[in-house]
Nucleic acid binder design. Sequence first.
DNA 1: ATATTTACTACGACAGCCGTAGTACGACAG
DNA 2: CTGTCGTACTACGGCTGTCGTAGTAAATAT
Lengths: 115, 115
Amino acid sequence: MAEISSDVIRGYNDIIILYLLLSNPSYGYEISKQIRTMSEDKYIIKETTLYSAFTRMEKNGFIESFVDEDLAGGKKRTYYRITETGREHYRAKCEEWTLTKEVIEKFIADEGRLV
Amino acid sequence: MAEISSDVIRGYNDIIILYLLLSNPSYGYEISKQIRTMSEDKYIIKETTLYSAFTRMEKNGFIESFVDEDLAGGKKRTYYRITETGREHYRAKCEEWTLTKEVIEKFIADEGRLV
DNA sequence: ATATTTACTACGACAGCCGTAGTACGACAG
DNA sequence: CTGTCGTACTACGGCTGTCGTAGTAAATAT
């Protein structure tokens, strides 16, 4: 079974995460589960990758963090909220995706050539 | 104008190059021009990236090199030919592309959500 | 009482891409 | 006959994002 390699997904983790923050703030564990569910187990993000993406994106101003100290039962969590800059970045990345898709598809051979 | 970032193309340079070797051997400079032309200048591969990809892929057994010593006018060139392993790799990468595309597109918001 | 799930943090390694620089040959202009 | 442009590379080192491994700790299920 083909799996998605890290080199291939590289650069898209950002938009995957930002997408999940578009409508409401969220936190690491929940996001990782959502990615898994939404991709039908085809992509399971590594924890370290996810948390380092948070750090990087906060540094870049794409997201902001806040801590929910005392939840009704449960450990304290660090939530992330997308910023306006983050939304712009997301939009730009989506456009880039369209372009990239078009380019790459020119280099995908149709069945005939793959003899 | 949106440009394709290196993190996004990463992992696809291999299939782009292999595609151009599917029907006949070729060499660095020609391949770089073909990529440029076929992508309508949307993607211009860096020389260093291209040549290091050659080295890597030869090490992995995806391509084989041979030198054309004395061409009718012109410097000597190193040509690369795709191997059977390379063809298999290319096929596998194309399948992976289909999968990746499906996954990523789930995280591209439709216009409505991008308010 | 113990295992599992939740929710992270730290550290270091690695691979692929890229910037910079340099080599060298041929062709063509001035 | 000198210089610039196009062709065809090689070498070296840096950066970034991902990943493996490991550890911490609270809450929940068994």
